[in-house]
């Protein structure tokens, strides 16, 4: 489904990744694993088109990652970043911001349950909820977009153990969803189908 072939990237004379290759199959749960600064976020960013590699290719099925194909590739992917300052005050506003569908509220409800939250969480002001709840709301909103590939950057960073378990249950039970995550969480890493050591 995704082919990352001989990709190299240097910045300011420093090699960040050198001729790195891997492939990801449909439905695989993949973990990018390594110490800080090893290139996990860089690889995620290259995969999403945020960084252009110096050499090598990235392919999504038959689509080469290129400026012309970016709108088509973005239709296949969703991204939950680690830290984000959202310009909205509630989950409902967030869902409305990201979805073109008028049934955005109905779309998100099943994913709220999956991530261990009640539907009234949608209308709560962000100032009234915890960082972990906010992160799960962002995740539920992204899952409601129903994209086949999900990118997660440190998905467990703001969560307690119970929330991590609920999140893992939700993500790993979705068999068709391809998940590419960068994490330091060992529990998460062990549950993944594939670990890419950096």
């Amino acid at each position: 489904m995704i082919e990352f072939k001989e990709v190299s990237l240097s910045r300011e004379g420093k090699t960040i990744i050198n001729k790195y290759s891997f492939s990801i199959k449909k439905g695989e749960k993949v973990c990018l694993w390594g110490p800080s600064g090893s290139g996990k976020t860089t690889i995620l960013r290259i995969l999403m088109g945020m960084l252009e590699p110096d050499s090598g290719t990235v392919k999504y099925e038959n689509l080469l990652l290129s400026p012309e194909n970016m709108p088509l590739i973005r239709k296949k992917i969703a991204w939950v970043p680690q830290n984000i300052n959202l310009p909205v005050n509630s989950g409902l506003e967030l869902a409305k911001m990201l979805q073109k569908d008028t049934y955005f509220k109905q779309n998100i409800e099943p994913f709220l349950e999956k991530t261990g939250m009640s539907t009234d969480m949608l209308t709560k002001d962000f100032s009234e909820i915890s960082g972990g709840q906010k992160q799960r709301l962002v995740l539920a909103t992204c899952l409601a977009l129903k994209r086949p590939i999900l990118f997660l950057d440190e998905p467990t960073s703001a969560l307690d153990n119970l929330s991590i378990k609920q999140l893992m249950d939700a993500i790993f039970s979705m068999k068709d969803l391809t998940v590419i995550s960068a994490t330091h969480n060992e529990q998460w890493m062990k549950q993944c189908d594939k670990v890419i050591n950096l």
Partner: peptide, 8 residues
């Protein structure tokens, strides 16, 4: 990037 990717 969050909006660019998720809303395309």
């Amino acid at each position: 990037y969050f909006i660019l990717i998720n809303k395309n």
